[in-house]
């Protein structure tokens, strides 16, 4: 089966997405961003070359981390652009349709779910909080050179158990941080730690949280993160965001 020359890439779904912010805005293929409407909903899309972004082309390009990075950043940038003006449900990377009508059909099929998701994220933003175990111990004895095999083993055991309890303390602290932030947020998610190969960060990530926060509580949230970071020197705490609500505008066809 030959692929058509153009495919439609979906960035996000929302309501009333067209506006001056789209002027000159481009997507993953350098294409102009535009809006497709259906049943009161709107999809932010772009027409991409299906040779480069169809099945085979995408397979080749996403296999290369540099190209993946470019595509991922442009996909996210388009979503972020519109999320600054309207609540949106961001689409996962590589959601493609043969044409606009097919986009409309898909959007209509999930109309109620989209409306519920959009109501859930309107006036709210996602914030990310990552915490790493610093392994800092207040009273760490400086190990002297072991004088015997037994001494070596004892020292090793002490080191491992100190490391273990330091990790446990960090895990408890991470729970405390997550619980406190969940009180301020409307919704909270704990995601699995990031893959060091993708993040390039070799530290031990012990919390990877996403928090949906009302805009008027954003400052309180950021302050709470800073306070918790101070209270927990055994953690290195990082705040990222605001993000479009990737974790909270959930519509899933595969469940």
């Amino acid at each position: 089966m030959t692929e058509p020359s153009v495919a439609v890439w979906v960035y996000a779904v929302g309501v009333d997405l067209d506006g001056p912010w789209l002027a000159g805005a481009t997507g993953v293929d350098g294409e102009s961003l535009r809006v497709v409407s259906a049943s009161g909903l709107a999809a932010l899309v772009g027409s991409v070359d299906s040779g480069r972004f169809g099945a085979e082309g995408l397979r080749r390009r996403l296999d290369d981390l540099d190209q993946l990075e470019g595509i991922a950043r442009r996909h996210h940038a388009a979503i972020a652009l519109i999320a600054a003006h309207r609540p949106v449900a961001p689409a996962r990377l590589a959601t493609l349709y043969a044409d606009d009508d097919r986009v409309r059909t898909a959007v209509r099929r999930h109309r109620d779910e989209f409306l519920a998701a959009l109501r859930n994220v309107a006036g709210r933003l996602e914030w990310g909080v990552k915490a790493y175990s610093t392994g800092s111990e207040p009273d760490q004895p400086t190990p002297s050179a072991p004088t015997s095999g037994t001494a070596y083993l004892r020292q090793r055991q002490a080191l491992l158990s100190a490391r273990n309890s330091s990790w446990q303390r960090a895990a408890e602290s991470a729970h405390a941080v997550h619980d406190r932030l969940s009180e301020i947020a409307v919704e909270a998610r704990e995601h699995r730690p990031q893959d060091p190969n993708l993040s390039g960060d070799r530290r031990s990530m012990i919390l990877n949280g996403a928090y949906l926060v009302d805009n008027e509580h954003a400052e309180e949230f950021a302050t709470a993160v800073a306070t918790l970071a101070d209270e927990h020197p055994e953690l290195a705490v990082e705040l990222t965001g605001p993000w479009p609500a990737y974790s909270f505008a959930v519509v899933d066809d595969e469940q």
């Binding site: 979906v10 996000a12 779904v13 993946l68 990075e69 991922a72 950043r73 996909h75 996210h76 449900a89 961001p90 689409a91 996962r92 990377l93 590589a94 959601t95 493609l96 349709y97 898909a106 099929r109 999930h110 989209f114 998701a117 990310g128 995601h191 990031q194 893959d195 993708l198 993040s199 390039g200 960060d201 990877n208 990222t240 993000w243 990737y246 974790s247 505008a249 959930v250 519509v251 899933d252 066809d253 595969e254």
Partner: peptide, 17 residues
């Protein structure tokens, strides 16, 4: 990149294209 990749690859709306 890690923050972006985990969001665009693993989260967001999943609808069948």
């Amino acid at each position: 990149l890690g923050d972006i990749l985990e969001r665009v690859l693993d989260r967001g709306v999943v609808i069948v294209g």
